[in-house]
C-alpha cells in the first residue's frame, strides 16, 4: 500500500480524489451507490448568496467524448444550504467542501462568511470561472484584476482553506493563477469547463437554451493537463487538477503534470462509483511502479 493521503493547504484527505462541483449533488444522491467516506473530498453544488433558478431547458448536449452544459448555477441559496442541507451532510466522514459562486465581490464574500461559520465544512472552492451565467464569475476569472479582487474580498471573510477554481477560457491561465495566489488563495483547482457550442443542423438551432455552454469530459483532458502543467510552473500553492478524468491512469497524468490532488466531474455520470475506483487504481498503480508515496510522481515533468 502506497501513501496516497494528501494535505492541500491544511485540508487533510485520505486520498487525492475529490468529486467536482455540480456533478455529485450534495453526495447524498450517490449514497446508495458508493461509500461516500471512501472519497477524499466531496465538493457540493455551486452555492450563491441568493437562490438561482438557473437557465432554461435544454441545458445539456452530448458531444464526442464529453458533454456541454448550461445549468447556470441553479441552487437555493446559501441560507437554505446552511439550514436544510448542511445538517444532512455534516456528519459524512470525509471533506465536505462548498463551491461558492457570485456576481460581485461583496456577494462572494458574504456567502463565504456564512459558510465559514459551518464547523464541518473545512474548505470552499471559489468559482470565478462559471461560463454559463452572465455575471457568474467568469467575468472575474478571465482578468488578473478581476480574479484578485474577488479572492481578496473572500480572503478577508473566509479563514479556512480557500481553493480558487480557474477558467481555461483565458489567454494565460498562469497569469490568473499567479494573481489569485498573490491575493491569498491557499490552492487552485483547474480547469472549469471550456466554452463550447453545438448546433442541431436539421432545426438550425443551438442545442442549448442559451446557445453556448461548458464542455466537459475526456474531450477536454489534454487541455486540462496542459493547464495544470503551466500553472504548476507559475505558482507555489497546491494544485487540484480536473478535466475528463475517467481512470487512475488519467489521474496519474495530472499528478505528473503537477497536480497534488484531482477532481472527477463528468465521470460520475458514467459510473457513480468512479471516484473510489480511481482512488484504488492510483494506489495499485503506485504499488506496481514501486512508488511508496504519491509525492514521488507529483510534478515529475520538468
Amino acid at each position: 500500500m502506497s501513501d496516497i493521503s494528501v494535505n492541500i493547504a491544511g485540508l487533510k484527505m485520505k486520498n487525492p480524489v475529490m468529486t467536482a462541483s455540480g456533478t455529485f449533488g450534495y453526495g447524498l444522491e450517490f449514497a446508495d451507490l458508493v461509500n461516500l467516506e471512501d472519497i477524499g473530498g466531496i465538493i457540493v453544488k455551486g452555492t450563491t448568496l441568493n437562490p438561482r433558478e438557473g437557465n432554461d431547458y435544454p441545458r445539456m448536449a452530448e458531444t464526442p467524448y464529453g458533454m456541454l452544459n448550461c445549468v447556470g448555477l441553479q441552487n437555493k441559496g446559501v441560507d437554505y444550504f446552511c439550514k436544510n442541507i448542511y445538517p444532512q451532510i455534516k456528519d459524512i466522514k470525509t471533506n465536505m467542501i462548498v463551491n461558492v459562486s457570485g456576481s460581485c465581490p461583496e456577494d462572494y464574500a458574504e456567502c463565504a462568511a456564512k459558510i465559514n461559520d459551518l464547523e464541518n465544512i473545512p474548505a470552499i472552492e471559489l468559482n470565478i470561472s462559471c461560463p454559463n451565467v452572465r455575471q457568474g464569475g467568469m467575468a472575474f476569472g478571465v482578468t488578473t484584476d478581476g480574479a484578485s479582487q474577488v479572492v481578496r474580498a473572500v480572503r478577508e471573510a473566509y479563514k479556512k482553506t480557500l481553493i480558487v477554481k480557474l477558467s481555461p477560457n483565458v489567454t494565460s491561465i498562469s497569469d490568473i493563477a499567479r494573481s489569485v495566489e498573490d491575493a491569498g488563495a491557499d490552492a487552485v483547482s483547474l480547469i472549469n469547463t471550456l466554452m463550447g457550442m453545438s448546433i442541431d443542423i436539421e432545426r438550425r438551432k443551438p442545442r442549448l437554451s442559451i446557445k453556448t455552454g461548458g464542455l466537459s469530459g475526456p474531450a477536454i483532458r489534454p487541455v486540462a493537463v496542459r493547464c495544470v502543467y503551466q500553472v504548476s510552473k507559475a505558482v507555489n500553492i497546491p494544485i487540484i487538477g480536473l478535466g475528463g478524468i475517467m481512470t487512475a491512469e488519467d489521474a496519474i497524468e495530472f499528478f505528473m503534470a503537477g497536480a497534488n490532488a484531482i477532481e472527477i466531474g463528468t465521470g460520475n455520470f458514467i459510473d457513480p462509483a468512479i471516484s473510489v475506483k480511481v482512488a484504488e487504481g492510483i494506489n495499485s498503480w503506485l504499488d506496481a511502479h514501486g512508488c511508496k508515496s504519491l509525492n514521488e510522481i507529483v510534478g515529475v515533468i520538468d
Binding site: T23, G25, R59, N69, V71, Q74, N268, F269
Partner: peptide, 11 residues
C-alpha cells in the same frame, strides 16, 4: 445525464 438529481440538466 446523471439520472440521480445531481447534474440538474433535465429540469
Amino acid at each position: 445525464a446523471c439520472g440521480l438529481g445531481a447534474c440538474l440538466c433535465c429540469v
